[in-house]
Design a protein around this nucleic acid. Structure first.
Lengths: 188, 188
DNA sequence: CGAGCGCTTGATTGAGTTCAAAAATCGTGG
DNA sequence: CCACGATTTTTGAACTCAATCAAGCGCTCG
């Protein structure tokens, strides 16, 4: 199991933790979290594919993150600061997730190597967000799209195109045209 | 001193740390960090005002962060992952900063309450970046500008307008027009 | 099998950019 | 303290990328 290898737990610790973990099967188009809910620590995706997104005041939705197998997905701000969440977390495919709740939280905080792992995850997250900001500030829709399929090739094949558009911050129509242009240019 | 109150150190710890801290006076328009350098842990601004920014491949610069008194400024990715930095850090005003170098790093990692403080800072940073992404995805230049002056009223008075434009991801001309519109609408 | 969803295409609109130049402000040396 | 040059801000006009509105196609899944 992925968590085992990557959180640096001992076999004993795993054995103690496992029976307390709450596994959840979520079918396509159902929600793990809604705007206004309080987000638990996080969800870990064993199989399937999830997304998190917000809906702004004009009704448009913006995808924050995709989470395929072995990814974590969460509203960190809501979980950490105990605030109601601003995001939805929804299954794009039938999925199996592990709910990392308060119990898990308290448990792993006792594990020596946890703090380092956690800091790594946070630092990584920050790097990722910063890259996305840079892209949004500087790059055209086309460049952002190419970046996306380079970084997440498997995700880009599994989600509908309008979701990629939402992640990139463009309309589905625009993304369709970007792709058309790219295809044309490839022929010549 | 701010660090004292906010990093949860004891008086003894402070006394031990203080003489080892490297204070640096930077005059306006000089750099603390350049693209390609390796970033030390962070800089703490005692007085003055700094900014960090990147220059993209088309030559345009994008301000990542302003740092007035009592703020930290850093390229976290460069510092944490020991990579050459992609950003510049430059003084906008004559400033006094404390260089939080490797020594500081090792020192505070021994302090019990450090890990929690650090996690808080990281979580906060993440929340901030996420908000900025949301704004870039959804809001108009005008809305982003109003957000900026609401969040950083003092900074908005101390920096030239073109820097605010750079932070918001618009041209100085556009920001000038946004402000003109706002002023006109206020009169009626 | 048909209703809905996702994708494409076209026409139009609009927010913001670019380029150019004038006006205002700042800062520095005499 | 003033004047001059440099920087910053404003304004104008043309342009561009992407958004919006609208219509049509194809697929699937209920």
């Amino acid at each position: 199991m992925y968590l085992k290898e990557n959180m640096g737990m001992t076999a004993t610790e795993i054995a103690r933790l496992l029976p307390r973990l709450h596994k959840k099967s979520v079918s396509k188009n159902t929600f793990l979290l809604r705007q206004g809910d309080q987000c638990p620590n996080a969800f870990f995706v064993e199989s399937g594919l999830l997304r998190s997104y917000t809906i702004d005041d004009t009704g448009k939705d913006h995808i924050i993150q995709f989470a395929p197998e072995n990814w974590f997905i969460s509203d960190r701000s809501s979980a950490y600061f105990h605030e109601p969440s601003l995001v939805f977390i929804e299954a794009i495919e039938d999925s199996m997730v592990i709910v990392l709740d308060q119990y898990y939280n308290d448990f792993i905080r006792e594990i020596p190597s946890y703090k380092e792992k956690n800091e790594m995850l946070l630092q990584n997250h920050i790097r990722h967000l910063q890259n996305r900001i840079n892209a949004l500030l500087g790059a055209t829709a086309e460049a952002r799209y190419l970046d996306f399929i380079r970084l997440y090739p498997s995700v880009s094949l599994r989600v509908p195109q309008w979701m990629i558009a939402s992640y990139l911050g463009v309309t589905p129509e625009s993304l369709s045209r970007v792709r058309k242009d790219l295809a044309n240019r490839h022929y010549r």
